[in-house]
């Protein structure tokens, strides 16, 4: 138990500082660690835990809460979440003060411009990894594409899209 908690802290503490572009763009890295190298979850379980974390209200860091809870109960959930948010949070508090001081500096604008394409690529890659894990047939692929278009082009509440997806699974899966 203690071993698992230490491992969770180390894994998510490391991922916390690598999670540039947010949790979604770090999903491939989380999946590589949890699914591919440690076999704590199957690919299907991983995408389903991700879906559950999306169905609950709150930030998408909740995927780490679920992985922690899956491995070591409520304590594991809390430890994994803290490990995921604390290193990055401490860093952001420090950097936001420096950032504020150099608001108009040229180097700051260069860094900002350089990070934009990287952020876009990482988020698209996260979507690519999730799509590949979740879509195991024609109906599910079509569901993903339809939801993607609606999320991209309309202002429908995400809850409708998630509920609709679950309904499609229920109706067409049985």
């Amino acid at each position: 138990m203690t071993n698992i908690l230490v491992t969770l802290t180390l894994i998510f503490g490391k991922l916390s500082l690598l999670a540039v572009g947010g949790i979604n763009s770090t999903l491939p890295e989380i999946a590589a660690e949890i699914v591919t190298s440690r076999h704590w979850l199957s690919p299907a379980q991983f995408s389903q835990l991700y879906a559950i974390s999306n169905a609950a209200p709150g930030p998408n860091v909740l995927i780490t809460t679920l992985i922690g809870a899956h491995m070591a109960g409520v304590t594991g959930g809390i430890i994994a979440t803290l490990a995921m948010i604390l290193p990055a949070g401490i860093l952001v508090v420090i950097v936001s003060q420096v950032w504020e001081t150099y608001r108009e500096a040229r180097w700051r604008r260069i860094i900002q411009a350089a990070l934009l394409p990287v952020t876009a690529g990482l988020i698209l890659a996260a979507a690519g990894v999730l799509v590949r894990q979740a879509d195991t047939g024609f109906t599910l692929t079509a569901t993903t594409l339809l939801v993607a278009i609606l999320a991209w082009r309309s202002n429908l509440h995400p809850l409708w899209l998630l509920g609709g997806g679950a309904l499609v699974g229920l109706i067409l899966g049985t």
């Binding site: 979604n24 879906a51 559950i52 799509v131 894990q133 939801v147 609606l150 899209l161 997806g165």
Partner: peptide
């Protein structure tokens, strides 16, 4: 859940 996961993947793709 399979449907939910497919929709969640679509949400991420749309947001991306």
């Amino acid at each position: 859940l399979a449907g939910l996961a497919a929709a969640a993947a679509g949400l991420v793709l749309g947001t991306a």
